[in-house]
Amino acid sequence: MKKLKLNITVNGQKHTLKIDPNLRLLDLLRENLHLTGTKEGCGIGECGACTVILDGRAVNSCLILAGQCEGREITTIEGVTPEDGLSPLQQSFLDNGAVQCGFCTPGMILSARALLDHNPTPTEAEIREAISGNLCRCTGYTQIVEAIQAVADGREEQQGSL
C-alpha cells in the first residue's frame, strides 16, 4: 500500500510521518506516537473514549483518518497534563469523585476542556450538552458535571492553562 506523508502537530510538537492511508487518527496517536491515554471503547464514534481536540474542537479520533489531519493541531490527554501536578480541571475531577475506572476520563476531560476553552462560564445545560457524547458506565455522570461546574464557577482555581 502506498504510504502518505503527513505533517501534524500533536500536543505542540511537530511530526512528519509516513502513514498508511487507512490509518485512523486514534491509531496514529496510540500506535505511532505511543500516546495511549486516548482510549478505544467502541471504534464507531458512539462512546467518546477516544475524544481528542482537533483545531480547538472535540472530535472522536476513531472516526477521523490520520490523513485528514495534514497541517492540523491535535491535543490529547497527555497535552493537557502539566509537567508537574494536575490541571485545575483534572484536580476538580479528582476532588469531586468524578473518576472511577478511568477509562472514559481522558475523553471526558478533553470534551470539557474544549467546552471551557470556548465558553469559560457554561451553564449546567451547556455542560450536559458538551459531554453528552461521552459515555461513562461507572459514575452516573453526576459527579462529572459537578467537577466541570466547579471549574466553570471558579471554585477550582484556574491557574494558567485549564
Binding site: 491515554g37 497534563t81 483534572q90 475531577f93 479528582l94 473518576v99
Partner: peptide
C-alpha cells in the same frame, strides 16, 4: 481521603490491557 489511583487515571498514564 482521596483515593490513590485517580491521579494516574486522570492523566491517561495508567496501563489498561490494550495499552
Amino acid at each position: 481521603i482521596t483515593r490513590p489511583d485517580v491521579a494516574a487515571k486522570i492523566t491517561g498514564r495508567v496501563q489498561f490491557l490494550d495499552d
